[in-house]
Nucleic acid binder design. Structure first.
Lengths: 222, 222
DNA sequence: CCAAAAGTGTTAGTGCTACACCCATGG
DNA sequence: CCATGGGTGTAGCACTAACACTTTTGG
């Protein structure tokens, strides 16, 4: 039985939730989009394999973003070449200025969601990954994994709005984030982003679980 | 690479959270307690393998309880016999009057938690399973999977108290459960359990996600 | 001065906690 | 009648949603 890892790598680009996808150069599913991934080496831990693939595809270390196991998919005929089980990982990374340099990355690109028609059972895996990300923004501080090391409250709000597909009240969002213990930490510095009053710059706080959680409005959309 | 499924099977017995464990008859870890599990067959889906193992060990179908994928563990040296990856599943089942009849089940028994010193990395897997169960009681109606088809509110409360290791106010718990849309459905019948006023009998409702969620008191204990 | 974005104050409503209180049964 | 557990009512507190309002910048 063969074992692979596949990656659902998400980021926010220009206000839209995007996934990192590769265009397959060989059969099966030649020319179709697919999740990046590859075989687990003989003496390699699963998480190490995922970290390696992430670095190869994005040039990003796990330090900047977030990487966690998503689920394992093992339906007997999911790969026409034979019995292959895949352990899917979910990565949340900041919008990378780096040009996706790397060996396997030649055909990799950021695709705005939703997307359909991926190879294998990757539609399902991607959907599960997005659903996990949506759920985790509610009760963890993971939204900050989409942001650079320093960010404004408006940028953090844009993450929630892109992932959840809703718009949030800027005033209440600001209060909620800044008063929730350990979510963000002020640097004291300010920055001009666009028009209007300069915004304060924040860094990630120490809390990983938010209490009370962020509340997702009832209106779910895509 | 070999692939197994291992099961974290939890139930409530006499007010205590218990896990189904087997005593290993062969090396490695001979005589040690371990999670039930076994190899995935060549043409078998992972979930099917888990369902099969659950039936073999407990004689229970998935209909009565609940079965979901937990996580996958693949550290290279987790099994001294070679590279074995295991996909762990979490099962929540009612207290079974049936005597655990089955082929592999000769050495299976319910062990009250916490327990330590299991074979392989099963301590870790069991801990992750219990943690998942604790978390899911908060925002899903899964607590009812621990109960028989018909149950009283007090029995449902005993599930929360056993899994969370806390005591809950019976009055507020009753109101919360009965007013949360779709959690439980009254049968109209009553039953005498012990002393005191007869309690109403309920069945599982149609909701799987609870909104608003049950709140776990801040005091965490084991 | 005006538009735009950042950030603060206030009010009404919802849900939770704590606990007083009533209900229905066995002994 | 009393003990015991089932179930309802209610006051105070925490948090949220909605929105008026002030602050700080560029044009």
């Amino acid at each position: 039985m063969q074992v692979t890892v596949d990656l659902v790598v998400l980021t926010i680009r220009e206000g839209a939730l995007c996934a990192l996808l590769i265009s397959r150069g060989i059969a099966p599913y030649r020319g179709r989009l697919a999740l990046p991934g590859g075989f687990v080496l003989d003496d390699e831990d699963l998480m190490d394999a995922a970290t390696r693939e992430l670095a190869e595809e994005t040039g990003v270390g796990t330090a900047a973003g977030h990487l966690e196991q998503l689920a394992t998919y093992g339906e007997p005929r999911r790969d026409p070449r034979g019995r292959v089980i895949t352990v899917a990982y979910l990565a949340l990374v900041p919008d990378l200025p780096a040009p996706l340099a790397g060996s396997d990355a030649s055909a990799a690109s950021w695709v705005p969601l939703p997307v359909d028609g991926l190879a294998f059972d990757h539609d399902r895996i991607l959907r599960d990954g997005v659903e996990r990300a949506r759920a985790k923004l509610e009760y963890t501080s993971l939204a900050a994994a989409f942001c650079p090391a320093e960010f404004t409250i408006a940028e953090l709000r844009a993450v929630y709005e892109a992932v959840w597909g809703v718009s949030l009240d800027p005033r209440n969002f600001h209060r909620k984030v800044t008063t929730t213990e350990g979510f963000v930490r002020s640097t004291g510095r300010r920055v001009m982003r666009d028009r209007g009053r300069p915004a304060e710059l924040f860094t990630r706080g120490t809390a990983s679980v938010l209490y009370p959680p962020m509340l997702r409005p009832a209106t779910a959309a895509d």
